[in-house]
Each structure stands twice: as structure tokens, then as C-alpha cells.
Amino acid sequence: MHIRLYTKTNCPLCDKAKAVLTELLADYSFTLEEIDIYKDDELLEKYQLMIPVVELDGEEIGYGAIEKEAVRKRLRRAQNS
């Protein structure tokens, strides 16, 4: 499983989302890739008002205030399929 976390600098919600994902790494095996949307104009246009955005294996599973249990549920589902 691969998670992309779309972020930007000076973003408290992004920091919180990263902390949630780091905690979940203890229970689930996935790679975590952090992508700064300000380094790609297309990403900036797409996610500017949504960040942070969590994407699991190419599917957006959350944005804004990331809920740990919602991400856990999606990871569990992905792991069992």
C-alpha cells in the first residue's frame, strides 16, 4: 500500500495529518510519500483549498481535517482485499 500526503509548508492541518499517518504506520504496512503542492503548478491548482489530501493507492480518501479512524478503516479494507 502506498499513501501520498499532499501538503504545503506552514500548514497545521498538514502537520496533524502527517502525525496521524505516522501513528498508523505502527499498525499497517504502507509507504508514505509527502508531496508539497507548491512544487507543482497542477497540484497547486487541484489541491490549493483542499490540503492536506490523503491518497491511498491512487484514490483520494480524505482531505482537510484527517480523521484517524476513517483512514484506519480504509487501510484495513485495502489490506484485506
Score class of each variant (00 low, 15 high):
residue 40 D to G: 09
residue 39 K to Y: 08
residue 52 P to V: 14
residue 50 M to R: 15
residue 64 G to H: 13
residue 66 I to T: 07
residue 57 D to V: 03
residue 52 P to K: 15
residue 65 A to C: 05
residue 66 I to F: 13
residue 51 I to P: 01
residue 52 P to Y: 12
residue 68 K to E: 04
residue 48 Q to M: 11
residue 48 Q to C: 03
residue 67 E to I: 08
residue 44 L to T: 10
residue 67 E to P: 00
residue 60 E to C: 09
residue 61 I to T: 02
residue 70 A to L: 02
residue 56 L to Y: 11
residue 69 E to S: 05
residue 46 K to W: 08
residue 49 L to Y: 11
residue 45 E to I: 13
residue 69 E to V: 01
residue 71 V to C: 03
residue 70 A to Y: 03
residue 46 K to T: 15
residue 64 G to P: 03
residue 62 G to D: 10
residue 56 L to A: 10
residue 54 V to G: 07
residue 46 K to H: 12
residue 50 M to L: 15
residue 46 K to C: 06
residue 48 Q to R: 12
residue 60 E to V: 15
residue 45 E to P: 00
residue 60 E to A: 12
residue 54 V to P: 03
residue 58 G to V: 07
residue 44 L to G: 11
residue 57 D to M: 04
residue 39 K to L: 11
residue 38 Y to P: 00
residue 35 I to N: 08
residue 32 L to M: 09
residue 43 L to P: 00
residue 38 Y to C: 11
residue 64 G to N: 12
residue 55 E to F: 00
residue 37 I to S: 04
residue 51 I to T: 07
residue 69 E to G: 01
residue 71 V to T: 01
residue 51 I to V: 13
residue 60 E to I: 15
residue 52 P to M: 14
residue 66 I to W: 13
residue 64 G to Y: 14
residue 43 L to M: 14
residue 34 E to I: 11
residue 69 E to I: 00
